Computed example of a mutant assay.
Amino acid sequence: MCDEPVSALDASVRAQIPDLLDDVQQRLGKALLLVSHDLSVVRRVSDRVLAMKDAQVVEEGTAEEVFDAPRHPYTKSLLAAVVTVGTDAAPPGELLEAGGPKPTRPGMPPAGATKPR
């Protein structure tokens, strides 16, 4: 299991991790479970992908199916949120609206609010 394997790494090391994961998988002949918000790593390393919202699977399929033809609005908004060099980012709020209502957690303050002590 790889939980956010590149999240705390600088760019020079981060680029090497997908190759390392591929190598480990091939040498050991084992599957890897990758948990990540870095969609470029997910696409590069994964054969199958699950998209989750509020701890529920909203879409599943091969990496090609999910990345090239997402079906669920939340998956579409996640992929639209990936900013690449030379592209325009969506206006603030547009991505969440495309994916449905903003996520909420019972007992959690709204985003940006502080919890009273």
Rank of each mutant, 00 (worst) to 15 (best):
M1L: 10
C2M: 13
E4V: 13
V6C: 05
D10S: 08
V13A: 02
V13C: 06
R14C: 03
R14T: 01
A15S: 12
A15M: 09
Q16G: 09
I17K: 02
P18Q: 06
P18H: 00
P18G: 02
P18D: 03
D19T: 06
D19S: 06
L21E: 00
L21C: 02
D22I: 05
Q26T: 14
Q26M: 10
Q26A: 14
Q26E: 07
A31N: 01
A31K: 04
A31W: 02
L33V: 03
V35C: 10
H37W: 07
H37R: 08
H37C: 03
S40I: 04
S40K: 00
V41P: 07
R43N: 09
R43H: 12
R44C: 10
V45T: 09
D47P: 05
R48K: 10
V49L: 10
V49D: 02
L50I: 13
A51G: 03
A51L: 11
M52W: 05
K53Y: 11
D54N: 12
D54L: 10
D54C: 12
D54E: 13
D54S: 15
V57K: 06
V58C: 00
V58T: 07
V58M: 01
E59C: 10
E59H: 08
E60Y: 11
G61S: 08
T62S: 12
T62M: 11
A63C: 07
E64A: 14
E65Y: 07
E65S: 05
E65I: 10
V66N: 03
V66I: 14
F67Q: 02
A69H: 05
A69N: 08
A69V: 15
A69S: 06
P70S: 08
P70K: 09
P73F: 02
P73N: 06
P73D: 01
Y74K: 01
K76A: 02
L78G: 00
L79C: 06
A80H: 04
V82I: 08
T84V: 14
V85A: 12
G86K: 05
G86H: 10
T87Q: 05
A89L: 15
A89Q: 13
A90C: 07
A90Q: 06
P92A: 00
G93L: 03
E94W: 15
E94Y: 15
L95I: 15
L95A: 08
L96H: 11
L96M: 14
E97H: 11
G99A: 04
G99Y: 01
G99W: 01
G100T: 14
G100Y: 15
P101K: 05
P103I: 01
T104H: 13
R105I: 13
R105H: 13
M108L: 15
A111Y: 14
A111C: 09
A111D: 04
A113S: 10
T114W: 04
K115W: 15
P116R: 07
R117F: 11
